[in-house]
């Protein structure tokens, strides 16, 4: 039933609260960010129109370029690993058992915890002198590095901690995908004498490609926005070796008072996300199997 007659006007009342807030706090700010990116403004003096000057400067900004590169390095390290770990967990837990239920809770604990708290926990454990990780490595005769303060290891740590936190999230998405696969498909493979390895590659994975696609889109969008773990674990260091795009936005707006410049950066971030998602959607026809 749809409301008709005199009742039909009521739609305004139903939509007003949400829509007014959406305009004020989302739509206007999105537009404002566009305008703002054409200005130089420190909030203290009057804004100065610079045209595309901010974008021209961004193209030359060594720090920003390094932030873009490190964001991509993060994604290249994080995305494949978290997907493999999450999928493995899902495959292992895709069974009926009390223990499987409990395990799901366990793997989900990091997902629901605040990034700040999680990052601090790891910062303590990765402490090079008194941290428990290096102590344990010492037990087997390995001298652990200064995880968060050495080039290379710092990024490895950020990626590792991120995988630890998000594996359970990826697992849940894949579990849903697995449960949508009809049991007879895998049974047929089994009757034909396929071993689990063959069954996975020839039957399960092809049927799972829609989920793989969905998960990769979600993770890619999220990982372009990587921020909290970097901010707490390394602060972008050492020597800017883990600085990322959102962190640069925050630093410019928050610490340097460069509002227009930060807004320009946020548009670049949006452009990146938009483009990559578009490419992914285009490419999906080549490898994602729907139906069947």
């Amino acid at each position: 039933m749809t409301w008709l007659g005199s009742a039909r006007r009521w739609w305004v009342a139903f939509l007003a609260p949400s829509f007014v807030l959406l305009i004020i706090f989302t739509i206007v700010p999105i537009a404002a960010a566009g305008v703002l990116s054409l200005f130089q403004w420190d909030l203290l003096t009057d804004p100065e129109f610079v045209g595309l000057g901010n974008f021209a400067e961004l193209a030359r900004d060594r720090q920003f370029r390094s932030a873009v590169v490190h964001t991509l390095v993060f994604i290249a390290g994080y995305l494949p690993v978290v997907m493999v770990v999450g999928l493995s967990l899902a495959l292992l837990l895709n069974r009926r058992s009390r223990l499987a239920g409990v395990s799901r809770v366990v793997f989900f604990m990091p997902v629901v915890s605040a990034w700040v708290a999680v990052a601090l926990m790891w910062r303590w454990m990765l402490n090079s002198r008194f941290g428990v990780i290096n102590w344990m490595l010492g037990l087997i005769g390995i001298e652990g590095p200064q995880w968060l303060f050495e080039r290379g290891w710092a990024m490895v740590s950020v990626i590792g901690v991120s995988v630890w936190k998000d594996a359970g999230f990826v697992m849940i998405l894949f579990l849903a995908g697995l449960q949508a696969i009809p049991a007879d498909c895998r049974e047929a493979a089994f009757v034909d004498g396929a071993n689990p390895w063959q069954t996975f590659w020839k039957v399960t994975l092809p049927l799972l490609t829609p989920t793989v696609f969905l998960v990769s889109v979600i993770l890619l969008i999220n990982s372009f926005q990587v921020f909290e773990q970097v901010w707490i674990l390394t602060g972008g260091g050492p020597l800017e070796s883990t600085t990322v795009v959102v962190e640069q936005i925050v630093r410019n707006a928050f610490s340097f008072g460069r509002m227009g410049y930060a807004a320009a950066m946020s548009w670049i971030l949006f452009a990146f996300i938009f483009t990559v998602t578009l490419i992914q959607t285009r490419l999906q026809r080549r490898w994602v199997h729907y139906g069947g």
Binding site: V28, I30, A33, F224, Q225, A253, M259, W267
Partner: peptide, 8 residues
């Protein structure tokens, strides 16, 4: 992404 709206 929410970072776009955050500065304005």
């Amino acid at each position: 992404p929410s970072q776009v709206t955050i500065v304005p």
